[in-house]
Design a protein around this nucleic acid. Structure first.
Length: 286
DNA sequence: CATATGTCCTGAGAGC
DNA sequence: TGCTCTCAGGACATAT
């Protein structure tokens, strides 16, 4: 589930590796099916060994580790991936170890319980075509007009469209629910039926929710998987207004019960009272 | 082209 | 208790 706030927190957490030199990269023994690594480990190791880490960044839900020769390691945590500076939660799911010298940290670890994540080493041209150009504007960079222009002609339901990384990069299932709740917009509304004012509310909620979640260092759900680089849980799960709160009272109107529906094979949570297609209800800006 | 659906993966939890 | 089944959802492949 790492979405933009969790990935941003990971990046900030591993910032101390900037300036270190990569001594070697290895795949620890793992009883599970290997998660995707490109290129294969011996080539990967040869290409990064001796390089120093110039910067750490983020693009949507991906962690970027930039080398001093313009290569970049692109990490997609997907559901259960973590980037760690300390001992991982389990040994079994440790996917990659980067041994470092010359800086504050001696190793950078990639851990992934379900192994759906990917780790790629790309040169600058490959990064441009295979990562950057395939993603929409980052959710914390996009303007309200850009967001509306991107989606206003789409017939898709707005909740489904917000998850499209080509349209806007960084929002996942959890934050889409929270964003639409604060927007007062029914998640089933077609994009092409949304008013300009509703797009503005959605944009404001994107910025508000994601920034707030970053301040709390992301959401650690019931399974406890998500952790920051020091293996500490986030705190935003205590602030969720609708996500995973089916049948509980709506925190805004207190009368309606949060409802769970399924859209595009994913759970959606919303308040049927506060989120209606005709945005007639006054808004919470929080 | 846009949109919709199927697939991968592991472990937690439900039900028997 | 121990088995089987379902579910969670990122991104991509394939289908419509």
């Amino acid at each position: 589930m790492p979405e933009l706030p969790e990935v941003e927190t990971m990046c900030r957490g591993i910032a101390p590796v900037v300036g270190s030199t990569i001594n070697s990269v290895e795949r620890p023994p793992c009883r599970l099916k290997a998660c995707l690594l490109q290129p294969r480990i011996d080539v990967f190791n040869r290409r990064v060994s001796g390089r120093s880490i110039e910067s750490v960044g983020r693009r949507g839900k991906r962690v970027l580790i930039h080398m001093d020769d313009s290569q970049v390691i692109v990490i997609e945590p997907r559901m259960t991936g973590l980037v760690l500076l300390v001992d991982p939660p389990t040994k079994d799911h440790l996917r990659l170890r980067m041994n470092l010298t010359g800086g504050a940290e001696s190793e950078l670890l990639i851990w992934d319980r379900r192994g759906l994540g990917t780790i790629r080493l790309l040169d600058a041209a490959e990064f441009a075509t295979r990562v950057d150009q395939r993603l929409g504007v980052d959710a914390l960079e996009i303007t309200a007009d850009q967001l509306r222009d991107q989606l206003k002609a789409s017939s898709r339901q707005v909740k489904v469209a917000l998850l499209d990384q080509k349209a806007i990069a960084g929002i996942g299932n959890l934050y889409a629910a929270e964003i639409l709740f604060l927007s007062g917009v029914d998640p089933r509304t077609r994009c092409d039926k949304l008013s300009r004012q509703q797009w503005q509310r959605i944009h404001a909620a994107i910025v508000g929710v994601l920034s707030e979640a970053i301040r709390y260092e992301g959401s650690t759900l019931g399974d406890g998987t998500y952790r920051n680089a020091l293996n500490d849980p986030g705190g935003y799960q205590n602030c969720h207004r609708v996500y995973d709160r089916a049948a509980l009272p709506c925190p805004r109107c207190r009368t309606g019960a949060i409802r769970r529906i399924v859209q595009a094979q994913r759970s959606t949570f919303f308040c049927p009272v506060c989120q209606q297609k005709r945005g007639v209800h006054p808004l919470v800006t929080r």
